[in-house]
Design a protein around this nucleic acid. Structure first.
Length: 149
DNA sequence: GCCAACGTTGGC
DNA sequence: GCCAACGTTGGC
């Protein structure tokens, strides 16, 4: 899951009450579907810092609450307000995530791209903007191994 | 800050 | 339902 560190960094998550926060503001249907339909309590995720260098995976978090309506879509004062999301039929969903660990360093996108085993990983593909992406078990292990190296 | 890639919107 | 125009994302 991607986040711009100046918006909400892994440290921000760690410093949140109980290391837990809701992953609000996602306004892409594919990303929403992953959160609404596929993510289960106990699932782990990589925390990816986008936009601001060094760009890459900085740690691990886990899902502690499964998909539920993103209330920020209902709030006209919220930057992620979406008038088309009806509280009776919510368009956008989010999950709650809890801090698990920070890598000793940022595993940069450059490194991920340089790793042969991660050639098929979504985040290494050109033009891939999706902010919530699936990771295969093999990719998961490979990334953890790189992070420990 | 640039701009390529992508997703969404809306006229037809 | 096509597709041009537009807005956004995100690496660089």
């Amino acid at each position: 899951m991607k986040s711009e560190p100046n918006e909400f960094s892994l440290d921000d998550l760690r410093n949140s009450p109980d290391g837990t926060a809701c992953w609000d503001g996602v306004r892409n249907y594919q990303a929403r579907n992953f959160m609404r339909d596929d993510m289960k309590v106990g699932d782990q995720m990589f925390y990816y810092h986008s936009r601001i260098a060094p760009v890459g995976i900085v740690g691990v978090a886990e899902i502690v609450r499964e998909g539920y309506p993103d209330h920020t879509a209902f709030d006209p004062d919220d930057p992620h307000f979406d008038p088309k999301s009806d509280p009776d039929n919510p368009r956008w969903f989010m999950v709650d995530v809890r801090f698990v660990k920070a890598f000793s360093r940022c595993l940069t996108l450059t490194e991920l791209k340089a790793c042969e085993a991660l050639e098929g990983m979504m985040v290494t593909r050109r033009g891939q903007r999706l902010s919530v992406q699936p990771v295969t078990p093999e990719e998961w292990k490979t990334v953890l191994r790189l992070a420990d190296a």
